[in-house]
Design a protein around this nucleic acid. Structure first.
Lengths: 212, 212
DNA sequence: ACCTGAACACCGTTCAAGT
DNA sequence: ACCTGAACACCGTTCAAGT
């Protein structure tokens, strides 16, 4: 027992913000957002807890790394000759797809402070996308503000109330709760069209010289 | 030291969901949402941690009690002869006032699952308010879905990015970040009018026989 | 520069016990 | 029925130390 200590030491370069982020994402989607802890991620990577601190400043930074992972997984390439309405629809459905793919991590992105490192550049890209589709920068900022608030609010609430295996089990078969329909994904598209119609009216109203 | 043990025992009736909720709200607004713990609330009430479990099932229930406190503090009485547009404006500004008054607790309400006990009855009240203002129940549910998602998303993000004393200190005086304006309270009203305009168009469009 | 374990001050919750 | 302390299995992070 004294000889050749078997404690495997992790090779030097095998840890990075990237690999930690991927592991963190796996932990959340498997075990839930509350399970995103330094210790669980270290265990997922089979490394000591303190090894993470060579790449992260603190637990908040760990959440930031996950936000980066999510942004990386959201592809929204510019598309030539697209109306701003269609660009908006594409943004909204890309966002919803991301929420569906990573339901338990999604709120980290949706509610992330603008100060989180990877968020601001992504927002800039979205503004540019709307400007490329013909909006003024002023209008693009207004549109993005409403779109982001609507989509973030809707999707975070939808994802939090997402039926679990347990809740489906215990639900009465004919539970006709009128509120249950409120945040289901059908109404996401309805709300999207409401927001787009409202923006159309605002932008056209301004162009034809009306006040406000 | 042996005589008359001084350990003050709390009188029997002095703890309740109500008083625990009020203490929890104080803790959050003073120390932040991360400080909402069983132990801190017990300390705020000068009682043993385990005393809380006579009134709460678990930590999740503690957050539920805070949600109840917030709903109690949101007064939104029905108002005779009000258009649904004005009722919507009143709902949106009441919600914003609540976020301003309880910035660190607000997200517990805004993102609460519909399963949290006090949330559903409150939603029912809001539906009734819109129906009283002339909408069909179908339209009221659509309106509330969009309004709630927009307001919750906007206000939670705004409140999370709310400038702290520290961040104001370190901000450059002429930092003209175009994204900074995105989630400030001026744009809240802009977005509110966009949503209302979109709903108007949808409801009027349907009334005049157009499809969708 | 990167990885590690021990130690400390927290946390929720179970259990057994007081009144 | 309501209140309590000790104990247990967690948590983030500091520190001192290995390579």
């Amino acid at each position: 027992m004294i000889a050749s200590q078997e404690t495997q030491r992790r090779p030097r370069g095998s840890l990075s913000r990237q690999s930690i982020g991927a592991a963190a994402l796996r932990v959340i989607e498997r075990d839930g957002l509350d399970s995103l802890t330094m210790r669980r991620v270290a265990s997922e990577l089979s490394c000591g807890v303190m090894s993470l601190y060579s790449h992260l400043t603190d637990a908040d930074d760990l959440r930031g790394v996950v936000v980066g992972q999510l942004i990386d997984r959201m592809d929204l390439r510019p598309c030539e000759g697209e109306s701003w309405q269609d660009a908006t629809r594409r943004m909204l459905s890309t966002y919803a797809d991301l929420a569906a793919s990573f339901p338990r991590s999604f709120e980290l992105l949706a509610l992330a402070g603008a100060d989180q490192r990877p968020v601001a550049p992504n927002m800039e890209r979205l503004v540019d996308l709307l400007v490329a589709a013909g909006l003024t920068e002023e209008d693009a900022l207004i549109a993005l503000s409403v779109i982001d608030a609507y989509a973030s609010g809707f999707l975070v609430i939808a994802v939090r109330n997402r039926p679990t295996a347990a809740s489906v089990e215990r639900a009465a078969p004919h539970q006709h709760d009128r509120l249950a329909r409120l945040h289901h994904l059908d109404s996401y598209d309805v709300g999207a069209e409401v927001v787009i119609a409202g923006l159309e009216q605002r932008f056209e109203g301004r162009r034809s010289g009306r006040k406000q």
